[in-house]
Each structure stands twice: as structure tokens, then as C-alpha cells.
Nucleic acid binder design. Structure first.
Length: 326
DNA sequence: AGCACA
């Protein structure tokens, strides 16, 4: 009768109460995740590499529009494995920060071997799924061929977001290596074996202010703020205010209006599609009933490959102005 | 990275 709902290894025991708010300021232990360390089978890695021209022929099956179980639809955190042991939280953050709906992420040195796992939390299930579909199977370190394995987390991250404009959290359960290093500030580059295998995702993200907190034998660092070097970050799609019309780019040159409409018409509230050929590179505008439905479609179709796609998946943003009626 | 139609 002892039903331990908090057992991290319990198969599908979800908390009955919404875990969103931790009353105490103390950081709760994140959901233990034996997860993919033990699970032998990953979903087959897609052959999709974001942003890189790789001419895969359209013989490949259409992209998976994966639909999750009802319980999984409540999950808006992703579990990330396949990371190299020298991965930095900064890299995880740069990996996810541009994904629509991203909230915050967590890097955990599990202390089991050199295993490192990460959790990325989004504002909703759809945006988490979109990010997963885009990034799963992506080669994280071209030097070693390390490939990302991303799945929905078994439960939503309980780590609160660091703070407003907060960034990421690091949990280090690893035994302290014999080092002259005092454990005071633990988040700075622990300057060893750091050849910084630059990935495609690296941004400018140099100075970070961090506060280290001791909790038992593990160190939790909360990164409060990213200080952009000097230059402002490139504008991301989040800068564009939400709009019920979407701007759609990265269409293949042979993409037809019908093909695109077919993909869009699966979504609630879809109304009108207009395509414009812009110097061979077509773009499109899709109008929806309201911002909620346009957002849903944007998050779901982000990075999705069409038959006609030749330079990677769709790129969707809120349009700068709403489609004119008529 | 690319945002029109009136």
C-alpha cells in the first residue's frame, strides 16, 4: 500500500498536484532520471541537420508529426542525452534558446560515470515537441560524432526558472576531483580539458553571473543573467509580436501552394494561404483565426520537412503584419 | 535570412 509517488524510478507516477510552484526557496531535487542511460532503444535518428545544406533526397519518409498520449501532452520538458561529458550548460542553453516557447534549461552531471543529461523546459507541450522534432538526432559534436537523443521528460522540470531573464541551472553530483580548486564558485570554466568543441549552436555568451549553492554533496548553480558581450543578440523570432498571420520561409523552390496548404489545413483556425515567389525562393503567409491557433501551428510546423524541402525544414515566424482581409 | 496583400 505504500505508494510512493515521488519515486523517481516509478514508471509513470505523476504528481497529482501541479508541481509548478515550490513554496520554499530551496531547490528541490530534480526528477531523477535513470532514463536513457538504461533504455537501450532510441527512436531512429532523423537525417535532418538544421541549417546545413545537405542534399538528402526526398525518398526519405515525411517528418514525424508525433502525437503524444494525453498524459504526455501535459509534459513541456524535454530530456536530453547523448551529450559529451565536457558539455557546458551554456551549450545546452544556446541549443534551445532560440526555439519558440523556450523557458529554461538544466544541465545535470549525474555522477554516474561521465554521464551528463539535460532538461529543457518550454512554455507548453507543443513548443517542446517542436524543439524535440527539430533537434533530435542532431550531431552535437562533429568532432566525436556525439548525437543528441531527445525525448519528452517523464515529468515536468521542477526547477524553477532562475529569475526574470534567467537562464539555466547546473546540478553537479560528481565527486569532486582532487583539485586545488575550492568549491566556492563552481560554475566558471573549470579550465581543464576544455577544447570547447564548438558546435553550430554557439552564440556569444561569455560572461555569466552565477551564484553557487551548496546542497549536500551536490552543487547547484543558478545563473541569474546572461550579460551579452557587447553586441546585442541577433533578433530572434520571439522579438516579433504575436500575430494571427504567420510568415513561412525556407520553402523549397518547387513547393506548391497546395502542398503547403495541405500541411496547414490540419490546424485549427487556419484560414488563408498566400504564396509569394521571391526570386526563386518562395515565401508564404498563412492567416489564422487568432493568435492561439497561429501559435499552435507555428510551433508544430517549425522545422518540419515537406516533400519539396531541399534546405531543411520549414521556418515559421509571426508575420509583421496581419493578412489583409479579402 | 527572406514579410505581401491593400
Amino acid at each position: 500500500m505504500a505508494f510512493t509517488a515521488s519515486s523517481g524510478y516509478a514508471q509513470r507516477s505523476y504528481e497529482p498536484k501541479p508541481p509548478l510552484h515550490s513554496p520554499a526557496a530551496t531547490i528541490h531535487q530534480p526528477p531523477l532520471h535513470g532514463g536513457s542511460l538504461d533504455s537501450p532503444s532510441y527512436p531512429p535518428p532523423p537525417s535532418y541537420d538544421p541549417g546545413y545544406t545537405h542534399h538528402h533526397h526526398q525518398t526519405a519518409p515525411p517528418p514525424p508529426l508525433v502525437h503524444a498520449n494525453p498524459e504526455q501532452q501535459r509534459i513541456h520538458s524535454l530530456f536530453v542525452s547523448g551529450l559529451p561529458d565536457d558539455v557546458k550548460a551554456r551549450e545546452i542553453h544556446n541549443l534551445f534558446r532560440r526555439r519558440p516557447g523556450f523557458d529554461h534549461c538544466l544541465l545535470e552531471y549525474t555522477g554516474r560515470g561521465n554521464q551528463v543529461v539535460a532538461f529543457a523546459t518550454f512554455l507548453n507541450h507543443q513548443s517542446a515537441m517542436a524543439a524535440m522534432n527539430t533537434l533530435n538526432g542532431v550531431v552535437f559534436d562533429p568532432q566525436t560524432g556525439a548525437t543528441l537523443h531527445i525525448e519528452l521528460a517523464r515529468s515536468n522540470s521542477r526547477t524553477k526558472r532562475p529569475r526574470e531573464g534567467g537562464v539555466y541551472v547546473v546540478i553537479d553530483k560528481r565527486a569532486k576531483v582532487a583539485n586545488n580548486d575550492h568549491e566556492t564558485s563552481s560554475n566558471d570554466e573549470d579550465g581543464r580539458s576544455d577544447e570547447a568543441p564548438d558546435t553550430y549552436y554557439d552564440d556569444a555568451c561569455d560572461k555569466i553571473a552565477s551564484t553557487a549553492v551548496e546542497s549536500g554533496d551536490m552543487t547547484i548553480s543558478m545563473v541569474d543573467e546572461v550579460t551579452p558581450n557587447e553586441r546585442p543578440e541577433k533578433p530572434i523570432s520571439g522579438d516579433i509580436p504575436p500575430c494571427s498571420t504567420l510568415f513561412i520561409a525556407n520553402l523549397g523552390p518547387t513547393c506548391t501552394e497546395d502542398e503547403l496548404r495541405d500541411a496547414l489545413s490540419k490546424f485549427t483556425g487556419f484560414h488563408t494561404l498566400k504564396m509569394r515567389g521571391r526570386g526563386g525562393m518562395p515565401v508564404a503567409f498563412a492567416d489564422f483565426e487568432d493568435i492561439e491557433s497561429s501559435t499552435e501551428a507555428m510551433n508544430s510546423l517549425q522545422g518540419v520537412l515537406l516533400e519539396s524541402s531541399d534546405r531543411g525544414g520549414l521556418h515559421l515566424e509571426y508575420a509583421r503584419s496581419k493578412m489583409r482581409k479579402g
